[in-house]
Amino acid sequence: MCLAIPMTITKIDGNYAIAMANGVETQVNFAMMPDIKINDKVLVHAGFIIEKLDEEQAREIEETWAEYYAILEKEEVKPA
């Protein structure tokens, strides 16, 4: 039960927000995330925002995996 898509909040009116991804806009309910703001990146599942996406986390994760790869590469380069 897990198709959820990253989208960006473009408008908030009353108890519905408008979220957008790939040029497609759709109305979403945000009862699970009442404190969302415009331009927040969120996860949308079946018309509902289920979480706010932490962009800072995403960058950190990318850096750790880049390091992970760099270390591996160095190990391979070392003479056997």
Binding site: L3, N22, V24
Partner: peptide, 12 residues
């Protein structure tokens, strides 16, 4: 197109 990708993602 971007829109088709977007809607296909949303609808699976």
């Amino acid at each position: 197109s971007e829109e088709v990708k977007g809607i296909c993602n949303l609808l699976g």
